[in-house]
Design a binder for these strands. Structure first.
Lengths: 187, 187
DNA sequence: GTTTTTCATTCACATAGGTGAACAAAGGAA
DNA sequence: TTCCTTTGTTCACCTATGTGAATGAAAAAC
């Protein structure tokens, strides 16, 4: 069974018929390694469900790629602010591996929630997930030192070293690659 | 005219009739200085519009009050995660001054958006505002040093020193009161 | 395969911010 | 007013993380 189907079945309580109806609105799209889901300046018109692979979110600040999020299988991919506000994206979202997304167009989502109001659940879950992630990140940055942020990340995403280069991990943690190296050698 | 009325008129394009209908769903509540809008462990059932006064959001971490947000006139007050997810709040929201909120119950909001779908605009604006604030905070914590975070905050809320004790400002910036003092004397 | 580029490690040194103490200033309560 | 509590400042010293360079390892390109 597809990840997206079991995700929707397990996360919400939709009937088989509803699930079919929902799934019909998604389209499957493959992304090559390094291909973009969204680039700075573009309008984000879709939410994507990661069926396979992974993506990073980043901004270019002072010429450096600053990683602000990761998405793996069963995560949603989208730029909330651009999607909701209908404004150009400030961030880039790029596949790190060959990946597959189930895409749902924002207009189609609106349409779908007209005929199936329960779909708003998906929408608010998405919002909540994004919001929770970003506040948690700010909280960690304030309250934990780099070593503890690293350990918290490992706990949350144990396989991250297998799938993301270390300098991206360092960037996400808000430290330099050398510092992450030092932290790892201290353990 | 009430702040809430001009806010809604200026931010969205509702007809006078719609505005009247919307405003009827809000109730005005006064808060004494130090009175709570929401305490850790409670379920957040309202969004509040700050008509007058101000509020801080904080968590207790290692026995310390860690400020994670401020709300002044024309800001919304709510704990998004608790409100949407129907889970106990992890944070406290407290009036710093004698304040007034226009409260809208979440169930009433649902009801209202049935009869007046445009109300969803308010809702998504709220979500977007919260989301934007928290990602911006994380971005600042990663990319700016304490001095620049302080200057960014002053630019965003120029009157903050008149209305919030300095040690709360330091906490929000993720530094100690002594450090903020040092930064201020360097300028 | 070989070469080139990218990524990770280590080191010596620099710097921002934390720590704890002492003190001053401001504000509330009486 | 006076006293007491809260808030802000300054200082000397400490620690975590940044910086830049050198080196090695791994991956990609040829």
């Amino acid at each position: 069974m597809k990840n997206i189907q079991s995700y929707i079945e397990n996360t919400f309580s939709f009937s088989p018929l509803e699930i079919e109806k929902i799934l019909k609105c998604f389209t499957l799209k493959s992304f090559q390694k390094k291909e973009y889901f969204l680039r700075e300046g573009q309008y984000c018109k879709n939410v994507g469900f990661v069926e396979k692979g992974n993506f990073i979110y980043y901004q270019i600040i002072n010429g450096e790629e600053k990683i602000c999020d990761f998405a793996f299988e069963n995560d949603w991919v989208s730029h909330y602010k651009s999607l909701l506000g209908n404004i150009p994206s400030e961030i880039n979202i790029k596949a790190l591996e060959n990946s597959e997304l189930y895409l749902l167009n924002i207009d189609k989502m609106e349409e779908l929630s007209q005929t199936l109001p329960k779909v708003n659940l998906i929408r608010s879950t998405l919002a909540e997930q994004y919001f929770t992630k970003s506040t948690q990140r700010a909280t960690n940055l304030i309250n934990l030192d780099a070593k503890n942020r690293y350990q918290a990340l490992l706990k949350e995403i144990p396989f991250i070293h297998q799938r993301v280069p270390q300098y991206y991990i360092a960037s996400y943690l808000g430290i330099k690659p050398q510092s992450l190296s030092r932290i790892r050698s201290e353990k």
